[in-house]
Amino acid sequence: MRKYIISVILLTLLFSCSGGENVRKSEAKQKEQVMQELLYGRLLSRKILSRYKVYDNQEATIYVTKVGRSVALFAGRSELTYYFSILDSDSINAFAAPGGYIFITLGSLKSMKNEAELAAILSHEIGHVNNRHIMRQIPPPRNQNFADTIAAVLVAQGTVVSSAMNETVNRASKLLFEDGYKIEDEYEADRSAVTYLIQTGYEHTALTEFMKRIDIIKSENSSIEVYHTHPPTNDRVSKINEYIIAQNATSINGKLVEKRFQNFIRTIN
């Protein structure tokens, strides 16, 4: 019996050791996947910045980054830093690339009433990143040696990537600017946004309030370019409200943070 007990203990230790090894391998693989995602995001960001000029106002960018990263503190994925940039455009739009590269237009910011609305739109984009919507819909090529690719990006003018990776990024760019995400992914990003807003302490109705205002702005001025790849606002608002009810969250009141936002708006007008 004693031999039996010793054997079981030894086998248990063996299993534990192999478990530790598995954890290390899993961590290394996860890190590689994040690096891959960051590279993908970086390349897609270049596409975004080939269409939009950056609004060069460091004070404003720091504010937007603080709002976005504050939400991200409560939004999981602690391995990502999340990078934010303001696009110098009157259009009302925001974009996210894998790895946490997030862009919002000046037109969007000027259409907002409070910080909760800014947090809501950034949360929606963070939701696309966290749920890996682009990575899942247009995955990077398999068997890509990302260490080599990253080296290539760094040393060779930033443009040398495999043709397969280039093709992937082109398809992702088409998704962002023409085709849009899958409708279910948009709804999932909305649900994530509501969750992040509640967990951060912002007023969660800011998301639907902003959407409704944009619809009004669009109906009053058809020349303003508004995000056109999203599902209709009524459908989104209904889905969001269904989620809020399911989460028993209708009575949760968060902060709008109006004064700080108005101070920010003065810096961009």
Partner: peptide, 22 residues
């Protein structure tokens, strides 16, 4: 510029606190 904008976590916590958040 995006990637090099570092904001210490303590600064984010102060930002949240000032807004009555978190």
């Amino acid at each position: 510029k995006m990637e090099n904008l570092v904001i210490p976590e303590e600064e984010l916590l102060s930002f949240l606190e000032a807004g009555g958040l978190g």
